[in-house]
Design a protein around this nucleic acid. Structure first.
Lengths: 190, 190
DNA sequence: CTCTGTTGCCTAGCGATGCTAGGATCGGTC
DNA sequence: GACCGATCCTAGCATCGCTAGGCAACAGAG
């Protein structure tokens, strides 16, 4: 019995090792460098081992994406907790969201560009997805005023997401991130 | 001499045929279906012919993206021209932007997800890029009030872009596009 | 009209990709 | 000590973007 437990533990560790290695490799050299061969080499196993853990490469990036959503939720919760009042919490969350996206480009890509078929907004959605959305929605709803809080959250989220992707794509002038978020926050707070 | 002209004309037609075929194929089956082999088959030439027109596949999607920016600029200009006053023009442009992104998903992907290294905001930027940004900026600047018009434009653009990508990724509840744009417009107009 | 040089195109193939089939090897069990 | 199942690796498949090399058709000179 204890042997089975050890096996399962080792297997779980390897599972996590695959996810972490994929993420590190992507963050270091971009997702196009994350091939199954390089990933296998990195975890010091052969390629087919990957497929005993994940159905395919897309499942691996989905796992990385889930990690990202969990961390984003934690980061948002942390700055909101420190903030003084709903408006300050809203502003802090907005700035933190942008900082998160820019600090973890490969992770953010996994969350929003590569893992496109994560089930969002469904009862069967993975917990980290609900967590992240709830962290945003909880903060945003407090400043929604008389507007539909969900629509307000969606618009705010989309605005921040758009800022991240356009900055990342080099389509906005660099160095003005703070000014843009400030303007957005000011306008949304009304 | 006339022979050369005919040659060049045929070559230009084939050039455009490649771009159009790539776009149609992408819009019909997604960009992952646009392989150099299928594209070659579609234009009824062999693969290497593609490389006598474009340095590689990425250049082909960049050409499609440029077409997209030109069309987006034209679409925005058209609705703005019809609008009654700056605020109405702003609202019309916002709705049109979202409609354009949702109606041409593959085209929009080429513009913002695949052709990531188009030179934006530079003096040597391709004309369609300047055109599209100018069409947005011209409309947005009129309602920027005392705010920095460029920052205002960037924020507005990013918000719309975020809405397109999140909706496209199935991350927002369907059927509320109009409500979200209305809220965004109302907030930005202040 | 013939010959020649160039241009334009296709066939074939390279390295790399995601993924899978098959056998070998190790471990636990009777 | 012999079997049996799980675990893992080697080898290979189809497909990808891209390129080398040769063949054929055509324009221009005599």
């Amino acid at each position: 019995m204890s042997i089975h437990q050890r096996r399962e533990r080792e297997r779980a560790e390897r599972h996590q090792l695959i996810i972490s290695s994929a993420r590190e490799l992507a963050e270091a050299e971009g997702w196009e460098a994350v091939t199954t061969r390089r990933l296998a080499e990195r975890i010091e196993y052969s390629q087919p081992v990957l497929y005993s853990h994940f159905a395919g490469k897309t499942e691996i990036v989905a796992a990385v994406a889930l990690e990202g959503f969990a961390e984003l939720a934690a980061a948002l919760r942390a700055v909101v907790r420190e903030a003084d009042g709903p408006a300050a919490a809203f502003a802090a969350a907005a700035h933190e969201y942008l900082a998160f996206g820019l600090a973890n480009p490969a992770l953010y890509d996994a969350m929003f560009t590569l893992a496109t078929d994560l089930p969002f907004g469904r009862p069967d959605s993975p917990e980290p997805l609900k967590e992240a959305f709830a962290a945003l929605a909880g903060t945003f709803a407090e400043v929604a005023g008389e507007r539909d809080p969900e629509v307000f959250t969606e618009v705010g989220w989309a605005s921040l997401h758009g800022l991240v992707t356009l900055v990342r794509g080099g389509r906005l002038r660099p160095g003005l991130e703070r000014a843009r978020v400030d303007l957005l926050v000011e306008r949304l707070l009304g």
